[in-house]
Nucleic acid binder design. Structure first.
Length: 426
RNA sequence: GGAGACGUAUCGAAGUGGUCGUAACGAGCUUGACUCGAAAUCAAGUUGUCCGCAAGGGCACGGGGGUUCGAAUCCCCCCGUCUCCGCCA
């Protein structure tokens, strides 16, 4: 969440930001609740001070009458306090639930716009691949080569689940290790994280585990959820801690399964592996000083580019429009790789995403560091995809397909796969 | 999953209803003294947070409730750690 103490001084700025993000948050109501809450809290604290004073008078030996009078006085304050606290709790609960919905300040450099069409392409790399023959999409290729099996996935687990088979399995493992090696070279500490996290961690990161539109699977009766990304488990790692300034930046990379409900996500653009309920992903995560976060955001993006250019894929980099930013994000860059099987004659499809969430998540998760002046301050937190295996496989299969339906393995992956081609069995 | 023990500051740990949350004691860390320097010794300082210009006050002893004029301390629920048993890759 944002710093709630700034809610009045930065009122106009916050309003403008909500507007730019095309969100529906009633700031005036939140501010009214804030004032109400403050006034009530002040009253309660004054009353508590009186109660403590009263109790302190009873520490020593006292005449019975004197003591009885004090106890009587205490009883009165107790019931008054209970009443006021109950009223306060009600207001406080409403206030904090609404306050959490205020989005992070967006970067001044983020393009203003309503939806993904307004995202700004800031870089193009490589030549989009076109074939002399009619290109297939990864679904057709995968079924012909017997490396992807969507029908069995649907039968056993349901729609949008899949099996990876044969050399497809080795391809995924190779990609995973290829990306890991690049990320490690940049000084990240590797993790394999839980695939489950508590709801409080989810919401601290900015995911809403409840409700119709939630993309999260909750595990009934446990207070936990299946994670949609290792951003959640890496970001929760230091929750409620004060970090040593000398330990920053902390650079982590985590491999996890990712589960997403994707309710309503259907159609041509969500076909096959592109949008699924379960996939694996290697995620990068950085905790750093506030003044460093812009630079680290660019570093994450450049590592992502290193991974995808290394695979010989054409891509573009997109600067996400304010209306398409998640609430915690201050700025977000996506890499969209060229996918020849997408649309009529190939299109770009998102393969990575990196967000600078500044101190927004750190406030909710209470992650701080001690600065040189002795004060504790909130860290900045950034996340970025190293490789989402399923989508990278889509891009590789479609770009490296041959006319006979076989797939050439990108040269940089061959040391990891141990083969340079996937062709029909038999 | 069952039974028991435990959860207090950076760590160990005392406290079992008011004098104990700038929390005994021990260690660590920081600063200073002593020293040629270090060790040892001595001294001082070492939780976070909220309201407030300040003075001052509120809150927090794993988390949440409750009892009480007053809770680290008594009761209930939850979480975590350890030990034993069960189960198991």
């Amino acid at each position: 969440m944002i710093d709630i103490r700034e809610i009045k001084e930065r009122r106009e700025e916050i309003k403008k930001n909500i507007e730019n993000r095309f969100m529906n948050v009633d700031l005036d109501r939140i501010i009214a609740l804030y004032d109400q809450r403050s006034a009530m809290l002040k009253e309660i604290e004054a009353l508590r001070a009186k109660r403590n004073e009263n109790a302190a008078k009873m520490k020593g030996k006292l005449e019975k009458e004197e003591r009885d009078a004090l106890i009587e006085e205490g009883k009165k304050m107790k019931s008054e306090l209970a009443e006021k606290e109950a009223a306060f709790n009600e207001v406080d609960l409403l206030f904090s639930s609404l306050a959490k919905t205020i989005p992070n300040y967006a970067s001044k450099d983020a393009p203003i716009g309503k939806e993904d069409k307004d995202n700004l392409a800031i870089k193009f790399y490589g030549e989009p691949k076109h074939f002399t023959f009619k290109a297939k999409d990864h679904v057709a290729l995968g079924e012909d080569l017997d490396i992807l099996d969507f029908d069995s996935g649907a039968k056993v687990a349901g729609q949008k689940f899949y099996y990876i088979k044969n050399k497809g399995v080795i391809l995924q493992m190779a990609l995973e290790r290829y990306a890991m090696d690049i990320v490690l070279k940049h000084g990240f500490t590797p993790f394999i994280t839980p695939d489950i996290a508590k709801e409080e961690i989810l919401s601290g990161i900015g995911f809403n585990p409840r409700g119709e539109e939630s993309n999260i699977y909750t595990i009934e009766g446990t207070g936990t959820c299946l994670v949609g990304t290792a951003e959640i488990t890496l970001g929760g790692y230091y929750s409620n801690m004060i970090l040593d300034k000398k330990d920053l930046p902390i650079k982590m990379t985590g491999l996890s399964h990712c589960f997403r409900r994707e309710a309503g996500g259907a159609g041509q653009y969500s076909k096959g592996l592109y949008r699924v309920h379960q996939f694996s992903k290697l995620e990068m995560f950085i905790y750093c000083l506030p003044e460093e976060s812009d630079a680290f955001h660019k570093e994450i993006l450049s590592i992502e580019e290193e991974i995808f250019s290394g695979l010989g894929l054409a891509y573009r980099v997109v600067d996400t429009a304010t209306g398409d930013l998640g609430a915690p994000a201050y700025r977000k860059f996506d890499i969209e790789a060229w996918m020849p099987g997408r649309g009529e004659d190939g299109e770009y499809g998102e393969v990575t995403s990196t967000s600078n969430c500044t101190d927004y998540q750190a406030r909710s998760l209470n992650i701080r560091y001690r600065d040189d002046d002795g004060k504790v301050k909130f860290v900045h937190m950034l996340n970025g995809t190293a490789v989402a295996l399923s989508r990278a496989i889509v891009a590789i299969m479609e770009n490296y397909q041959n006319e006979d339906g076989s797939i050439t393995i990108p040269p940089s992956l061959v040391p990891y796969t141990g083969f340079d081609r996937i062709e029909k069995l038999k």
